[in-house]
Design a binder for these strands. Sequence first.
DNA 1: CCGACCTGTCACGAAACTGACACACTTCTC
DNA 2: GAGAAGTGTGTCAGTTTCGTGACAGGTCGG
Lengths: 228, 228
Amino acid sequence: MSTILIVDDEQPIRSMVGFALGRAGFELREAADAEQAYAEIDRQRPELILMDWMLPGASGLDIVRRLQRNAETQDIPVIMLTARTEESDKINGFSAGVDDYISKPFSPAELIARIQAVLRRSRNTQPAESLEFAGLALDPLSHRVTANGVELEFGPTEFRLLKFFMQHPDRVYTREQLLDNAWGRNVYVEERTVDVHILRLRKALAPHGCDHYIQTVRGAGYRFSPTA
Amino acid sequence: MSTILIVDDEQPIRSMVGFALGRAGFELREAADAEQAYAEIDRQRPELILMDWMLPGASGLDIVRRLQRNAETQDIPVIMLTARTEESDKINGFSAGVDDYISKPFSPAELIARIQAVLRRSRNTQPAESLEFAGLALDPLSHRVTANGVELEFGPTEFRLLKFFMQHPDRVYTREQLLDNAWGRNVYVEERTVDVHILRLRKALAPHGCDHYIQTVRGAGYRFSPTA
DNA sequence: CCGACCTGTCACGAAACTGACACACTTCTC
DNA sequence: GAGAAGTGTGTCAGTTTCGTGACAGGTCGG
C-alpha cells in the first residue's frame, strides 16, 4: 500500500484526489500549506508527493527544492499539479527533481495512471536497500556512503552517479547514458563533464582502495565492477 | 540515413538547421506551416521532427497533439524549438509526447547531440546476450572478454571485430565484409588493415590457446570457428 | 555582502589506438 | 624450381581518447 501526500490549499481538490486515490488503493495524507507538508513528510515518509503549483506563502517548487536539499527527502518522487493560467511563470521543475506534471483540470484516470507510472519508474531506480560491494556501501535512504566503515562525503551529482553505478554493476555505460541517468534526460551538459565527476569519485574512493572499482573502457564509457 | 523534418516559418532558421544537419549526415526536409508539415509527413514518414513552438495559425503543440492522435504518426519523436526557456510550456509538451526541447538560440553541436540522443532512445535497442565458445566469452554489456576466466584487453576496433566474429561463427567473411561490419559501411580503410587486426586478435588469444579460433581462408578472407 | 561549496567547461599532456607500409614468409601455378 | 599472388608481422607516426589541474559561475547559508 502506497502512501501519497497531497499538498494543496484547496480543500475540494484534496477531496477529489482523495476519493480517486482511495478507489485505486492508495492511502492519502493531506497538507494545505508548506508547514503542514514538512510536518507530514517528517512524520512519515510518503512514497510520492502531489504538489500544487501555487500555494499560499511558498510556491510548490520552493518546497521541492528544499526537499531536494535534504538527504532524507531527496528521492521522494514529486508530481506537480499546475493550472493553465500560470504558464507564464518561469520554472525549472524538471531540473529541480519534479518527475511529472499534471494540468488542472485532470481526470481521476489520468491521475492514477501518472502516479503509477512515476512509482514504477522510481521503484526501478530507487531500491530502498543498501547497496554494498566489497567494503563500499551506499545507503539510498540515509544518503550515506561508507568505505570500510569510514564515511565519505559526496556532492549530490557524485552521489547520484555512484548510486547509479552501484545499482547497475558490471556493465558499461556511455557518457551519454550516464548523463541520462545521473543528471537527467532533459539537461544538456558536455560529455566530458562525466570524466571530471568520475575523477572526483575516484579521488574520494582512492584513500580506501576502492578507486579501481570504476573502470574506463576506452572508446565505450565507464563501468562499475568491484571484482575487477 | 535519417530523414528529419523541420517545421518552422522562419527561413533563416531552416537554412541554419539544414546546414548543421547536412554536415552531420542527416537528410532534411522543410515545412513552413502546419499544412506543409502534414503534407510532408504524409509523403514520407520522417524519423524525427523538429517543431517550432510558434507557428502562424496553429502552434507547434497543436500539430504534435494531432500527430499523437494518428496511429501512423504517433510514435515519431518530436523535438520542440522554443523561443525561450518557458518551462511551463515544457510541462504541457512532455505530456503531449514531445521528446525533448531546445531553446533558441542553440548551437549546431547541441542540436546534433539532442537529435542523436532522441533517436537512440526511440530506437529499440535490444540487450545483447553474452557470447561464448569453448572457454572464450564475450559480454557486450560489460564490454569484457575472458578466455578460460582470464580477462583480455582489446581496443575498440578489435573488440568489434571479435564480437562480429562470435556473432557469426563458422562462416567466411571477406576483408571487405569485415570492414563493413566491424568498422562501418562508409569508411575507407585498406583491406590489408584487417590482416593487422586479425594478427592482434590472435596475439591476444594465443596465450590462452584460442588463436586458432580465427582461421585464414586463403583467397577468401577469415573465419571464426572454435571447433576447427 | 561574503565565503564555502558544488558544478560544468576548458586546456594541456599523456597514453592508447589505429592505419599504413615494408618486408618476410607461405602457398599456388606453371 | 621460379615467379606470382596472398598472407604474417614488426614498426611507426598521426589521430583519438582520457586524466587532470585550473577556473569561473552559481547556490546557499550566515
